[in-house]
Amino acid sequence: MRDDAFAAYFERHHAAFSRLAYLMTGDATAADDLAADALAEVWRHWERVESADSPGAYGRGIVMNLARQWVRRQSRERLWLLEPFRRTPESDVPAVLDVRSALRRLPHRRRACVVLRYAFDLSEKEVAGVLGISVGAVKSATSRGARQLADLLGGGVELDGWEAAR
């Protein structure tokens, strides 16, 4: 029973976890790795996850923490600054590159709020639960992040480098 439930969880969430990690890191390979690591962590704490109000939110929180750690490592190693545009299948699409680069410029909390609200349609309360912050903080970070993204994507701002997780 326990294993069936986890198998269902894996099938239901692995793709969404990978997409979430991709939006937070901009790296397709890292996204799959972080999704897998998050699922391993979910399995390790399965009883706690299963009894949580929202098992999916629990997993998303783990993905966010892992993504933040990954960004910090990359920033320390300065890899992104040296190679801001990694070649991936979608990187031939200028619009996609622009959005990915613009997301990189956002501080971690703003990026997280914008991604969870806009890409995954989570409510402000749900985002607050995933990130462990107040609803007010979610509102503020989402608003500022969306405004910053709108400015960046609207042109006139050079898109390169990353904003370190903070």
């Binding site: 939006l23 397709a28 996204a31 799959d32 897998a36 391993a40 959005v99 806009y118 890409a119």
Partner: peptide, 21 residues
């Protein structure tokens, strides 16, 4: 729409995720 398009552009590799998991 731009963020959703970026998310949709990423195709998760189930087998790679399963293998690392």
């Amino acid at each position: 729409r731009a963020i959703r398009a970026l998310a949709a552009a990423h195709v998760p590799d189930r087998e790679a995720i399963l293998s690392r998991f």
